[in-house]
Nucleic acid binder design. Structure first.
Lengths: 154, 154
DNA sequence: TACATTTGTGTCGCGAACGATATAATCTTG
DNA sequence: CAAGATTATATCGTTCGCGACACAAATGTA
């Protein structure tokens, strides 16, 4: 039986999966200082860029379903970093706003990207490589994203 | 305040995180037919390559801690795909063996890698690109992995 | 031989992810 | 305007992922 394709080393998915997990782990010490997790950080990144978005808008930007985002937002609300307000025009929609504390956290987050790149960089992988990698992954992302949308509607 | 580095689009981590999740999602329909999840599939890939490994050996190959692997192995055991046997030489070690059912599942898994590549391929991303991506990620992985090991012993 | 240390595995608790499903508000279509 | 479809959000149950911790077996050292 030709099982060469089932070798772990042949899988494209495995290094992506592992790198993703390990990078998240690399974020942890910095995010712990802010008292947040990596997915929570992603939500804040989105809100720091543009405040007052609906749950749906956030979920689309992060490619996460609302059943992942909703509980996450609850935790951010409990941390007093965001506030949720039901829209008056469309009672189904919920707008998410940064609180003062949430806005202030941005200043503390500013140095994180550079710190992380410093941590992840090496002789083997330099910033230009990361940039290249990012571009390839983004292209791929746009492809996969649309394929997933067409196969499962959620 | 120069907050350009906090833009979601500037983050290297985000596309990796998203692609990883979406690829896992792409596996789902095929793995569902086998009755297993993606992490369970990874464990089986390892065992199909070399049977009778200890929990520790599996955890090192997959870069996952034993506290993730242990419950996962329990579920695979419940599915009657593997069997755990405590070593007689070193009573601390537990060897993991495929059952007949686990061995037979390999035949069903054989076509999966090709199906997945077909699903993920497009005009924009071809097999050679995936291969290139894989190699870059693997190099990066080896770097991050060692940095993580040195910072946190587990 | 005693006692501390290390090693291998596992449990606990929490926060994601996500499929399935629920519920209410809005829109569509007859 | 009424009935069905759609949309936005949220809940539930299961599995991961992981830090903290527990515990017994093995190892090292005095």
């Amino acid at each position: 039986m030709d099982d060469s394709k089932l070798k772990l080393s042949k899988q494209v998915c495995f290094p992506i999966y592992s790198v993703s997990r390990l990078i998240t782990k690399a974020y942890r010490p910095y995010l712990e200082e802010l008292g947040i997790t990596y997915p929570q950080y992603l939500v804040l990144l989105v809100l720091w860029e543009k405040d007052n978005l609906t749950v749906n808008e956030i979920s689309k930007k992060l490619l996460l379903n609302t059943n992942t985002i909703s509980p996450l937002l609850k935790r951010l609300e409990k941390l007093d970093l965001i506030q949720r307000k039901r829209s008056s025009e469309d009672e189904r929609s919920v707008f998410v706003q940064l609180t003062d504390k949430g806005k202030q956290l941005k200043a503390q987050a500013l140095p994180i990207p550079e710190k992380l790149i410093a941590d992840l960089e090496s002789e083997k992988i330099q910033i230009e490589d990361m940039e290249k990698l990012k571009n390839m992954l983004c292209e791929w992302l746009s492809v996969i994203q649309h394929k997933c949308e067409s196969s499962t509607k959620n």
